[in-house]
Amino acid sequence: MYPIDYGSMVELGAFLALALIAVAFSILSVLTKDYVYSALSLGIVGISFAGLFATLGYGYIATFHLLVYVGAAVTFIAFSVVMMRELPEDYRSLKFVALAIGELFAILISASLLSGVAPVQLKPMPSLSELADTIVSTYWFPLLVLALSLATVIIEGLVIARREGR
């Protein structure tokens, strides 16, 4: 008789719940007619993906994803769509073609990636200090470019806000 590993069962249960929520709300975000529900569904997908990152062992990335992506980006989309209340029609004729292409895409990703999965040993996860040291020492130039691009986004927002005020 094998001992029951409750830890693994809880982990698997959490993964299945998060995966189910992610898939269900991603479908809802594409199919729902209301933009607000669509944006809120994207937020729930973001939260469940952060949970999936955490089950992979990337706790810091999950926190960052929640704070920056869900907290800022998705909320920004949700507040912006309130200003644009309209119900655009979708391509009726393309719906089945799009469904076929989407399914084909999913099957191709699964097939191509799963054929290369081999049972290899997991590497140890980095600590927060290791992560910060690597970013500042090795990846200082991408960090600089990233800071400049974020500054550009702020300038763009200011320009559009000024345009609105005129």
Partner: peptide
């Protein structure tokens, strides 16, 4: 796959 479907089928 759902994302690809959304990009192709929607025009908003």
């Amino acid at each position: 796959g759902v994302g690809v479907y959304g990009v192709i089928s929607q025009r908003g």
